[in-house]
Simulated assay, not measured.
Amino acid sequence: MATRLLALGRAEATLLKRNKTALYVALLMPVLMVWAMHSATAKLDLEKTGMSANEASITGAFGFVLLFAVYQNLSGAFVARREELVLKRLRTSEAGDAEILAGSALPAVGVALAQCVVLVVAGAAWLHLRVPARPDLLIAGFVLGVVLFVALAAVTATGARTAESAQLLSTPLLLLSVAGSGVAVPLKVMPDLVADICELLPMTPVVELMRGGWLGTLGLYETVGHLATALAWVVIAVFAVRKWFRWESRR
């Protein structure tokens, strides 16, 4: 199984390197978004959040990485491989459905992991942020986020006919996550009712786990709540993929 996953990952990495637009979006868009949002975050009243502007923007950057490097990138990639009949041919091999999707996602996940590591190192070394207080929660948030957004990318690809239309279909969730999941604006800055609603969004528990894992701000009750919400979204997304994902070309 591991050999098949690595082989699929190498093939997808080659295709990703050839697609310069997708590669630039995966690598550069999170950096540009963090830079653009930092100045806006600095103007917020963050006193009751217990975070500085640097802490809010850098920990929110984890969300940008997952959204652009994983979700939006893979939404288009899954559609492109389906329409090129790559997925259909792979299903005739020994690889199972989950292996095909996981192997195809490996390069994007690798890019996301590298960017998250750079964020942690840069935050601690250059911005003088505290060392991650709960690495276990940081890792748990990343793993749950990867599984969730790989699955959501596959769900989004189901409704798209072309890679370009997949980018459009992924935009609503992307914008909603940026605006309401604590990526750009921490939940504690929002009105209570709005924050309670935003806690139910797919990205929110992932960002809160990774942010709380770095800053050490999550209690047991909050940790369990975010883990449960993230796992519930993972179950829903995986169920949707198993039920509705299209392996045949829509042409």
Rank of each mutant, 00 (worst) to 15 (best):
V183T: 14
G219Y: 05
G219Q: 02
V207E: 09
P186A: 05
I236G: 10
L220S: 09
A184Y: 09
V206C: 07
L215C: 10
H226S: 05
M203L: 15
A237T: 13
V194R: 01
M190H: 04
L201F: 14
M210S: 01
L200S: 12
H226N: 12
V194A: 10
I236M: 15
E222P: 00
V241H: 01
D192G: 10
T229S: 13
G216I: 14
I197C: 13
L218G: 07
D192P: 07
A228N: 11
L187I: 00
V224S: 08
D192K: 15
I236K: 09
A232K: 08
K243P: 09
A195P: 01
W214N: 03
F245Y: 14
G225R: 13
R242V: 15
T204Y: 01
Y221K: 12
L215G: 08
V183E: 04
S181F: 03
V241G: 04
R242I: 12
R242W: 12
V224P: 03
A232E: 08
F239S: 15
E208D: 07
L231W: 14
R211C: 02
A240E: 13
S181G: 13
I197M: 15
L193D: 13
P205A: 07
W233E: 08
T204A: 09
D192A: 15
S181P: 05
A232C: 10
I236A: 15
R211M: 06
V235S: 07
M190N: 01
Y221G: 09
K188M: 03
V183H: 00
G182K: 06
V206E: 04
R246Q: 14
